[in-house]
């Protein structure tokens, strides 16, 4: 029973990582850049939802929608101001710019909203739970919602990339930008769209994350950001099912390692597993191995 409990918590945490990892993986797939500011977009989304719900007493759903709207705009603005001028530059330059954006968001949040931790109101009361097996196993409603949201997002995204015109344009751009442009696809708009979707997902992930962990500070997003990035690599960066698989595995491993081995070494174990996986499958679990050509 204890194991099952850990497993469910792991899947719940993993679902959050998976949603964040989707943002990383989509942006990487299309723009070939590591968007280090993604974790901080999560934080901004959480703050927006926090203020909407706590300060302005708006319903939770409105708070989440508002957070998604603000994050979408933020994602597109960041892309347009900071990354677009560097489209032709090397990936390291873009990486450093992304780090600059990350610093900027964190410090702006600290300036605007102070670094005092905020107590985040959960989307459903934390006490709500379902008891199974005569009360031996209790699953909180929040956990179920988190997992359900993750599944819905995955299905929607699979449909979007597979069936819609914009989704197909995205896949075309990630295959070959020049060829996509020749086929009449507006590459710049497609990239902006990718950032918009990734950032909207980040807002949802932020709300779920803060509902589970209660506290909200300007650096809330950085560690989950790094972990989700790891999850994206774990599953094979650029692959959407890979992000889901990587996120879930990472969450489960993290909770199990914390439960059975040591909470102090939790992160070390997660990263050690990542290293072992990459040594066996150098392109991640579901990543495509690219053969070198001379």
């Amino acid at each position: 029973m204890v194991f099952l409990n850990y497993l469910i918590n792991g899947i719940s945490l993993g679902s959050i990582y998976a949603i964040i990892a989707l943002g990383y993986t989509m942006v990487y797939g299309i723009a070939k850049m590591l968007n280090f500011a993604h974790g901080d977009v999560i934080m901004v989304g959480s703050y927006i939802c926090f203020f909407a719900v706590s300060t302005y007493q708006l319903p939770t759903v409105v708070g989440i929608l508002l957070a998604m709207a603000v994050c979408t705009v933020l994602g597109v603005v960041i892309e347009g101001l900071a990354y677009k001028p560097l489209r032709q530059a090397g990936s390291l330059a873009v990486l450093i710019t992304a780090i600059g954006v990350s610093y900027f968001l964190q410090n702006a949040a600290q300036r605007l909203w102070s670094s005092n931790p905020k107590i985040f109101p959960p989307i459903v009361p934390r006490e709500w739970s379902i008891s199974l097996f005569n009360g031996q196993l209790s699953i909180s409603v929040l956990t179920i919602i988190t997992i359900a949201v993750c599944i819905v997002i995955m299905l929607a995204l699979t449909f979007f990339t597979g069936k819609t015109k914009m989704g197909k344009a995205m896949r075309a751009c990630s295959e070959d930008k020049a060829a996509a442009q020749l086929m009449g696809i507006n590459v710049n708009r497609t990239i902006s769209m990718t950032f918009a979707i990734g950032s909207a997902l980040a807002a949802i992930a932020g709300v779920l994350l803060c509902s589970a962990y209660q506290t909200l500070v300007p650096t809330t997003g950085s560690m989950p950001g790094i972990k989700a990035f790891t999850a994206a690599v774990f599953g094979g960066i650029g692959s959407i099912p890979g992000a889901l698989l990587g996120g879930l595995l990472l969450g489960v491993i993290e909770i199990l390692a914390g439960g059975y081995i040591s909470t102090q070494l939790q992160n070390a174990i997660v990263f050690a597993v990542l290293i072992v996986v990459l040594l066996v499958k150098p392109a991640g679990l579901l990543g495509k191995a690219v053969r070198e050509k001379v």
Binding site: A82, P85, Y103, N107
Partner: peptide
Amino acid sequence: ELRMLVYAIVLILVMIATNNP
């Protein structure tokens, strides 16, 4: 309190200025 904000902006601007064709 603005110093880290300025630092971040300087970083972004320098990267854009030195890498934009």
